[in-house]
Design a protein around this nucleic acid. Structure first.
Length: 591
RNA sequence: GGCCCUGUGGCGCAAUUGGAUAGCGCAUCUGACUACGAAUCAGAAGGUUACAGGUUCGAAUCUUGUCAGGGUCACCA
């Protein structure tokens, strides 16, 4: 039972004893540094139940808990705030109870609880991953891990956008200009190679447009009638008809891309439990639409197109099936959602990691699924995140202004290398160990940089100066971890026994911070926000560094205190590692 | 134009979801390595939380309006 719960129970009891009034809950917060105390009861909300002077009520309650809660050693009242001082014994007892719990803070999955499916990444297969995908991947992966740690079973998934006109464009360009180039023949990463042809298509397409404009056509006509575009459209039709040659080229080029993606995902450290391909799902949803008409959720217009009227919900009308009977994006998403629950019957909700330009789409999708009567529709969440912009503005893959994911990770690793070499603390490390370490640090910096920001806020990314290695950064936290490991390596005595000591102020602060960890995970899961975990870790580390600099650990004379401090350092390191795992960031033993 | 998101020291982020005198990191200025690792620590300076009203014991947070930035309003995905 947490100290909060203990006090809350007693305060309720006290309220009844003192004023004969029942109160439903009590509000607490951490005591601010400038006041004496460890936990603070906010009196103001209680005035609703008992009118009076908040200071007097605070005094009454303070006196009551002091007499009735053994863990409280003193109290003081400032305005409407009752500050309570908690006995060292409570904290050491708490520490001893968690010290050996290697999964401290995590909740193991509850048997009957439904699973969550977390979708993220979902790239197009016509170009390499860029900075925007990086944010998506990091967020999706981390949120999945956080939800898992908070006690739910999780399936990580993505829907790979492997078909459509954009795919045909790169296929066509390759056919026309590729001269049979392959990843093997060129030494290029598959996704890069295909991406090049996507760019190539756009270049040639633009040439054709300006050509026909100079021949007197309007821009609109030129765009619509360009031979390359018509050819690409023809190719799409052939693909949909199952044309053998087109399909086999499609398969081959996609396989190049997948090989490339695999390398990127592996470097990034993200993974998936199950994959969905749009080529398999793009026809889904049509029968659901048919059923929806019977239910009265959808209606047919004169031209045969099918719509959903959402005006009663403050939205527009939305098309769910074209007049020619083909599916639109919305149709697919309806079908795919239903398919997923069929495939994984224990799924009770889904998280879609998709940029905020699709806010409206998901609002509509969730509403339609609700109207169709699926009970899991209440547990759908659009993890919407802000764009990553460059100082020069938006990234445009066709204009070559993107920050490539592979290159970015490589640059971060290089920076880590440069800094590490300057500091020169790695004697005895092999070449392989070193390069592994640089990757850990470089990626740690990148991941932390992106994840510490509230997802819904947009990020301005300056490739030249953006990612720091000092202050509130990944490497700062990794450094603290490494330093603790150094202490643990030097602690060559038996520190396994439980001790009870008089706590140093810094130790008490650290214990309070450790106590917040389980709640932090729950909060991060409830808010779909890795930033909450990142900020928690930073606070923990800052608190530890202050402790470290002010208090001697191995130099401590008193044996019990020395034991406790090694244990405490150990637990802090373990918690750093555990929290960083939720962010997908590794920690080094040395750096 | 309608709807949605954002606006916090020069810059980048917080604020226990309505609680105390708004915290922290870069950058700037002072100090601390013959010390368990200085990618660190201790301190200084820097704010009318975009602006104006409203709600209440109490507002960065809720509400209304204004301004600024972004997004979205396709038989595209």
């Amino acid at each position: 039972m947490s100290i909060k719960n203990i006090i809350e129970t007693k305060v309720k009891e006290g309220f009844l004893a003192l004023y004969n009034i029942e109160i439903p809950s009590v509000e607490f917060q951490a005591t601010r540094k400038e006041f004496e105390g460890d936990i603070t009861l906010v009196v103001f909300p209680l005035l609703r139940y008992k009118k009076g002077n908040p200071v007097q009520i605070g005094e009454d309650l303070g006196k009551y808990v002091l007499e009735n809660v053994t863990e409280i050693t003193s109290y003081n009242v400032v305005k409407g705030f009752l500050n309570l001082v908690i006995d060292d014994g409570f904290y050491t007892k708490f520490f001893n109870s968690i010290y050996l719990d290697s999964s401290y803070g995590y909740v193991s999955p509850i048997a009957d609880e439904k699973a969550m499916m977390v979708e993220y990444s979902s790239p197009n297969t016509n170009k390499p991953l860029h900075l925007g995908h990086v944010r998506n991947n990091l967020l999706g992966y981390s949120v999945a891990e956080i939800i898992k740690a908070a006690g739910k079973k999780v399936y990580k998934t993505q829907i790979i956008n492997d078909r459509g006109i954009h795919i045909c464009k790169s296929m066509l360009a390759w056919e026309k200009f590729g001269n049979g180039e392959t990843p093997t023949s060129s030494g290029l990463k598959g996704d890069k190679l295909v991406g090049n042809y996507y760019v190539k298509f756009d270049q040639e397409y633009k040439k054709e447009i300006s050509q026909s404009i100079s021949e007197g056509k309007t821009e609109e006509e030129a765009k619509k009638e360009a031979p390359l575009l018509l050819e690409a459209q023809q190719m799409l039709l052939k693909w949909e008809a199952g044309d053998e040659q087109v399909v086999s080229l499609w398969k081959e080029m996609n396989s190049w891309v997948y090989n490339g993606f695999e390398v990127t995902y592996k470097n990034m450290g993200v993974d998936f439990d199950t994959l969905y391909y749009e080529s398999n799902t793009y026809l889904l949803g049509k029968d659901v639409v048919a059923q929806g008409i019977k239910k009265g959720v959808f209606y047919k217009k004169e031209d045969g197109s099918i719509w959903c009227d959402l005006t009663d919900d403050g939205l527009d009308e939305k098309i769910v099936l074209r007049s020619d009977g083909t599916a639109v994006y919305m149709t697919q998403d309806i079908g795919t959602a239903i398919q997923r629950v069929k495939d994984f019957p224990d799924v009770g909700g889904m998280v879609y990691t998709v940029g905020n330009e699709q806010d409206y789409h998901f609002q509509v999708l969730f509403l339609i699924l609700k109207k169709l009567g699926f009970d899991w529709s209440k547990q759908l969440h659009h993890l919407s995140y802000g764009m990553v912009d460059l100082p020069s503005g938006k990234m445009k893959s066709r204009e070559g202004t993107v920050v490539d994911a592979d290159e970015l990770m490589l640059e971060m690793t290089d920076t880590a290398k440069t800094i590490s070499e300057e500091l020169g603390k790695l004697e005895g490390y092999s070449k392989e160990e070193k390069s592994e370490l640089y990757k850990t640090i470089g990626l740690g910096a990148l991941k932390y940089f992106i994840l510490k920001v509230d997802p819904k806020k947009r990020i301005l990314f300056d490739p030249k100066s953006s990612v720091d290695f000092q202050g509130n950064t990944g490497p700062f936290i990794q450094y603290t971890y490494a330093r603790i490991q150094s202490i643990v390596r030097k602690a060559d005595f038996d520190y396994s026994k439980s001790v009870t000591i008089k706590l140093h102020e810094k130790e008490k602060e650290l214990l309070k911070q450790l106590e917040l960890y389980p709640d932090t995970i729950q909060q991060a899961a409830a808010n779909y926000s890795p930033a909450i975990v990142a900020n928690y870790t930073y606070d923990l580390v800052k608190e530890f560094n202050s402790f470290y600099q002010n208090v001697s650990i191995l130099g401590e004379e008193n044996q019990d205190k020395k034991i406790f401090r090694v244990q405490l350092a150990n637990k802090v390191a373990e918690t750093i590692k555990s929290a960083f795992l939720l962010l997908g960031i590794n920690v080094p033993e040395r750096m």
